[in-house]
């Protein structure tokens, strides 16, 4: 209910710091390699690249807002993609007329979203009704979801889609890549959910103090179910984008995205203990990451080095965000 945010607050908010970082990284890359970084081709390719893990980061964000975490996002994404892929390869083929394959694509998307929602429901039920800690619940369920994907495919990739599938991941609409549009829509939706609905405020309040939420007569079980269903749906959308871009589906795609999703959420200022998080922060974090990643790519830094940089960044951001340095200094003096 921060009805009025005074100007003083804007510059001290962690999101403002992120904006500065995003602009700085963009500027740095633009200066280091103007003709390549600022080329239309690079900018477009960036816009195609990041939405898939950015959407997973949004899913992670809402789980973290409750003080939980969703370690099953990648598993849900792959299971959804595998189910959609199996439907597509079983019932449609490249020779089919576009109208017919579009119907099968719609059915496959619907099935993937159902899988995402069901998986979310399972996670939510484990956390809400069985009282499992979210880490364990989603660790276990993530294995189960991945396991189903393996069992259904025997561990190999499913491929051979009709060309309509490329619409999700590789097409543009008015010159804007479809994945980017999907991400933007989901980000706006999540932002509105978190800040403008009763459910969103309950999520924040529950994250701040679960026991007080119980005493405030908040229907916690229902809220948690919704949270994990939303996370599941977002994950399955990310899965569909991955499937379309890779033109195949496999149980172990995007295994590094889990870390990336946590990293972006934390980088975006979401409190892993719950109770604080803003979508705008997550979006800015995604952009900084993508600018950096793309820049490193141009500087021909290997994937492995990038992993190293992500990890270091995650810890650096935690150190800054939690004022850990003051804690360190304080630890050598009596506390006040």
């Amino acid at each position: 209910m921060t009805t009025r945010i005074s100007t003083r607050d804007v510059t001290t908010a962690p999101e403002f710091r992120l904006l500065v970082i995003a602009v700085f990284v963009f500027g740095l890359m633009a200066v280091l390699s103007p003709e390549r970084f600022l080329s239309t081709q690079n900018l477009t390719s960036m816009a195609f690249q990041f939405p898939e893990f950015a959407i997973l980061a949004l899913a992670m964000t809402i789980a973290m807002m409750t003080g939980g975490i969703d370690l099953s996002v990648v598993g849900v994404a792959n299971l959804s993609a595998v189910v959609a892929a199996i439907i597509l390869t079983q019932y449609s083929n490249a020779d089919m007329p576009a109208s017919q394959s579009a119907i099968w694509l719609a059915i496959a998307i619907a099935a993937a979203l159902c899988i995402g929602a069901t998986a979310g429901l399972v996670n939510g039920a484990l956390v809400a009704f069985f009282g499992l800690p979210p880490i364990l619940a989603t660790l276990g369920s993530g294995l189960v979801f991945t396991g189903f994907a393996i069992a259904m495919t025997g561990g190999s990739a499913v491929m051979g889609f009709p060309s309509t599938v490329a619409l999700i991941g590789n097409a543009t609409l008015f010159g804007i890549p479809v994945p980017l549009i999907l991400f933007a829509v989901l980000a706006v939706v999540l932002h509105l959910i978190l800040t403008r609905t009763a459910f969103g405020l309950r999520v924040t309040m529950y994250g701040a103090n679960p026991l007080a939420a119980l005493y405030a007569a908040i229907d916690i079980n229902r809220m948690l179910l919704k949270v994990y269903v939303i996370a599941g749906l977002f994950s399955s959308i990310a899965g569909l984008i991955v499937m379309s871009r890779a033109n195949s589906a496999k149980a172990d795609y995007g295994s590094s995205y889990l870390l990336l999703a946590v990293l972006i959420a934390v980088l975006g200022g979401v409190n892993p203990y719950g109770g604080y998080g803003r979508v705008i922060g997550v979006v800015l974090a995604v952009l900084s990451m993508q600018f950096l990643s793309s820049g490193l790519n141009m500087l021909q830094v290997s994937n492995f080095a990038r992993e190293l940089i992500w990890g270091a960044l995650l810890i650096l951001v935690m150190v800054i965000n939690t004022h850990a340095v003051t804690a360190l200094r304080g630890s050598f003096r009596p506390k006040t």
Partner: peptide, 24 residues
């Protein structure tokens, strides 16, 4: 401290959380 209030949240929110449905 543990049951009644959301300590890290604003004073306003701590009151408003009781009326979310009414203004929705």
């Amino acid at each position: 401290l543990t049951e009644g209030l959301f300590l890290s949240q604003s004073i306003l929110r701590n009151v408003a959380v009781g009326r979310l449905d009414a203004h929705s």
